[in-house]
């Protein structure tokens, strides 16, 4: 019975994974319009895991996240951070309780992200490309 449950769960997760690939949003990483930084996926991953804490100009990076359950967030976690939710949670518990880093500040929507980035030259965040406007600058696009 137990093995059957595991098998059913793994099949389900595979189907969901396939499904999420199909409906995956076009995610972009955005910064303040004045920020001329150039980033690849690897450096974005390190920034969002707080392994890189400063831009090349030396300014401390302020990282913003979207809330748990947000489709764009889940796609970003799987494609860029490449960690399951539980692995990511355990990772942040380690960082937090060792005083090494805190998880990114969570904003509730892309609109809030845009307001925050427009007011902070050291901010970085991600969003659905459809939400991009002139208040932010796209530094990386992931199809």
């Amino acid at each position: 019975m137990f093995i059957k449950q595991i098998t059913a769960a793994s099949l389900l997760s595979m189907i969901l994974a396939l499904g999420s690939t199909v409906v995956q949003a076009d995610i972009v990483v955005v910064v303040h319009p004045s920020n001329n930084v150039s980033l690849d996926v690897k450096s974005v991953r390190r920034i969002f895991l707080s392994k890189s804490k400063a831009f090349p100009n030396g300014n401390k990076i302020d990282v913003y996240d979207l809330p748990f359950g947000n489709t764009v967030r889940e796609d970003f976690r799987e494609t860029v951070l490449r960690k399951s939710e539980s692995r990511l949670n355990a990772y942040w518990a380690r960082m937090l309780f060792s005083s090494k880093a805190r998880p990114p500040v969570v904003l509730s929507s892309a609109d809030e992200v845009k307001v925050m980035i427009a007011n902070n030259p050291n901010a970085i965040a991600y969003m659905d490309s459809a939400d991009v406007d002139q208040s932010v600058k796209v530094v990386l696009s992931m199809l």
């Binding site: 913003y64 996240d65 809330p67 748990f68 359950g69 805190r102 969570v106 929507s109 809030e112 007011n119």
Partner: peptide
Amino acid sequence: PLFLASLSSVMLSIPTTH
């Protein structure tokens, strides 16, 4: 209501003067 949504997040954060 955004606060309630943020409770499931790590940190409450509202735009303000840094």
